[in-house]
Amino acid sequence: MTSCHIAEEHIQKVAIFGGTHGNELTGVFLVKHWLENGAEIQRTGLEVKPFITNPRAVKKCTRYIDCDLNRIFDLENLGKKMSEDLPYEVRRAQEINHLFGPKDSEDSYDIIFDLHNTTSNMGCTLILEDSRNNFLIQMFHYIKTSLAPLPCYVYLIEHPSLKYATTRSIAKYPVGIEVGPQPQGVLRADILDQMRKMIKHALDFIHHFNEGKEFPPCAIEVYKIIEKVDYPRDENGEIAAIIHPNLQDQDWKPLHPGDPMFLTLDGKTIPLGGDCTVYPVFVNEAAYYEKKEAFAKTTKLTLNAKSIRCCLH
């Protein structure tokens, strides 16, 4: 018999989150649709729960009410004593943790798909938090293969000092899905179709896995975050240069030392320094102006996964 890495157990509980950011409308629209008619997301033997994560922000069509829901799922915020004085999103995070967690427990949901849009030209993107997770690498390989020839990129946010504390991190297997470009507060049919297909293929993978299909060893190309880059700023902290036209919409493309990065209003080009080629992502993302992030630098690498098969009882 072929030796293989056996994944822990079959997958039982899956959640699909929309509206973690209330103005990213593809996930909101799909989740609302699936709450009314969820036939397309159901798979035999699998509990799939669509869920609106930040209903107040969705109602106002804004990213958040008090603070970013997708950055506060750490033990400090989840452990705060519940009171009306807490920011709305912290209270909501505790409610979500109660419903789908608790985080880092045996009772937490197996998989959470968190649906997002970006204003950046990132196409279909899967966000991975753990480079050693054979199950998710296999799932992402399946999704990428199923979507081809449509490109699907994998963004690895594993980093020693950049801690995200994402909404989906309460699950055993957290999956971020990011599709763009799409303006905030807008629905685009092409973007919706791409996100819908990503979810379909992900659920198909889980179904095949649960039925005992063995997935042979595989490898995927990923883009691992190195650092986030702020806009150049003046002495008052105001933005002093904008994304250069040569960099705009060039997510995932190589940016070499000396290539144009920013452009000042008086026409001066600010190039990339250093001696390493990087791959920019979230270029000129609207939501990241407040976070002082013009783009993120990534490096390209390959992740390998062992063969996996479900432990059938």
Rank of each mutant, 00 (worst) to 15 (best):
312 L>K: 12
117 N>R: 03
158 E>C: 04
101 G>F: 05
226 I>D: 11
220 I>G: 00
313 H>R: 14
282 F>G: 13
262 F>T: 02
93 A>H: 15
22 G>T: 11
283 V>E: 01
197 K>L: 15
144 K>G: 05
19 G>F: 03
139 M>V: 00
239 I>H: 04
96 I>F: 06
35 L>W: 07
27 G>T: 01
37 N>D: 13
25 L>C: 13
48 V>H: 02
224 K>G: 05
80 K>M: 08
94 Q>G: 07
296 A>E: 10
61 C>H: 11
303 L>F: 04
234 D>A: 11
254 P>L: 04
206 I>R: 00
180 G>K: 01
30 L>S: 00
163 K>I: 13
260 P>G: 09
253 K>I: 09
11 I>L: 14
87 P>W: 08
275 D>A: 10
258 G>Q: 11
279 Y>K: 00
161 S>L: 10
122 M>G: 04
7 A>H: 13
130 D>E: 06
24 E>W: 00
284 N>Q: 01
3 S>E: 09
234 D>K: 15
91 R>T: 14
73 F>V: 12
200 K>D: 09
286 A>N: 06
262 F>I: 00
301 L>A: 05
285 E>N: 07
45 G>W: 04
146 S>E: 09
180 G>N: 03
33 H>T: 15
273 G>F: 07
149 P>M: 03
214 E>M: 07
144 K>M: 10
140 F>V: 12
30 L>V: 03
231 Y>I: 04
246 N>L: 13
267 G>A: 06
33 H>L: 08
20 T>E: 03
123 G>P: 00
123 G>A: 06
304 N>T: 12
231 Y>A: 02
115 L>T: 03
209 F>Y: 15
131 S>F: 06
73 F>D: 11
113 F>G: 02
221 E>H: 04
121 N>P: 03
59 K>R: 12
145 T>K: 15
100 F>H: 06
199 I>A: 03
2 T>W: 15
201 H>E: 06
271 P>A: 12
107 D>Y: 14
308 I>R: 00
262 F>K: 01
65 I>P: 06
57 A>K: 04
283 V>M: 02
152 C>I: 09
104 D>H: 10
248 Q>H: 02
252 W>Q: 02
12 Q>Y: 08
265 L>R: 12
240 A>G: 11
134 N>E: 06
38 G>Y: 13
174 P>I: 07
